[in-house]
Design a protein around this nucleic acid. Structure first.
Lengths: 148, 148
DNA sequence: AGAATTTATATGAAAAGGAATATATCTCTG
DNA sequence: CAGAGATATATTCCTTTTCATATAAATTCT
């Protein structure tokens, strides 16, 4: 496998690993009646409701104008609602609805099950080492989305 | 950083690490006058010219109809040329042009330099462990693009 | 306080992407 | 060797994303 440039190129290995593993889960999302951007937003809100639109964009790795439109669609679909910020009226806070929570709950369980499958070949310390290496890469190379 | 679901979720860590590290390099690509899909195609061809269009799509993690359009644009830009397959006339073989090679060469050097920077905090065995873990994930979870 | 600057979100036109399907060629079977 | 099925690429239509910029509110500076 390793006689091509890309097979030893970190950026390719990261992209490919992310792509392949995510593709598996995205197939499962269909059974939950969720599209990928919907899943990302709802999963984010489900452990921190009422985030700003820009925060959501940064956490879900989307551009801000894209998130505006994703939220537009999700609001129409009844999955989230916008509320104007209390102190800072420029802010738009996004809240998950009962319907949104209903739809994301099963997907969250499935996500955990899928992750366990993906990591099933690793022992516990290996799992943590993999995640730690990724977290280190992120810490060194990313802008922090929680500050956005 | 780890009090959110996503911060311990493998698929998110992979997506975020890939996204952040790639974003750094994509900024550099502009200096080489290359767009991201162009870079991916040219980098692939530069270590294996004359691949089929479908192969290119699989290696660069794009869908086939998308690759048709990318190659359309790159052919117009003079970076690649299409040639009909010799034995199998359904095939379309993509070849890099002199201009394409000229443009990608500096970017390839830059890619190696950038990768070295990203991995500069790791010692040699750590670097290999990270790449090996990613290769293992790919082997277990992906369809092999080289068979496409 | 008021003007200038910064920050948060929205908008609009153009480009790109995705799903389904068409077209062309090849392969295999009877 | 005809025809059914499989494979490689292209095309079409529709949705989504991107880029640049507009709008609105808050903050800073003098």
């Amino acid at each position: 496998m390793a006689d091509r440039f890309v097979d030893d190129y970190l950026l390719y290995l990261l992209a490919r690993a992310s792509n392949d593993v995510s593709a598996q889960f995205h197939a499962r999302l269909k059974h939950h009646g969720l599209q990928v951007p919907e899943w990302r937003v709802l999963a984010t809100l489900s452990d921190g409701d009422g985030r700003r639109l820009g925060e959501l964009a940064a956490i879900t790795l989307q551009h801000q104008p894209t998130m505006t439109k994703i939220v537009d669609r999700m609001e129409k679909a009844g999955l989230v609602v916008r509320r104007q910020g209390a102190e800072d009226r420029r802010e738009v806070r996004i809240h998950i609805t009962a319907e949104g929570r209903r739809r994301v709950d099963a997907a969250l369980e499935d996500a955990k099950a899928h992750e366990a499958e993906v990591l099933s070949g690793y022992d516990a310390p290996e799992k943590e080492r993999l995640k730690d290496m990724l977290r280190t890469l992120i810490a060194r190379n990313g802008e922090r989305p929680d500050r956005a």
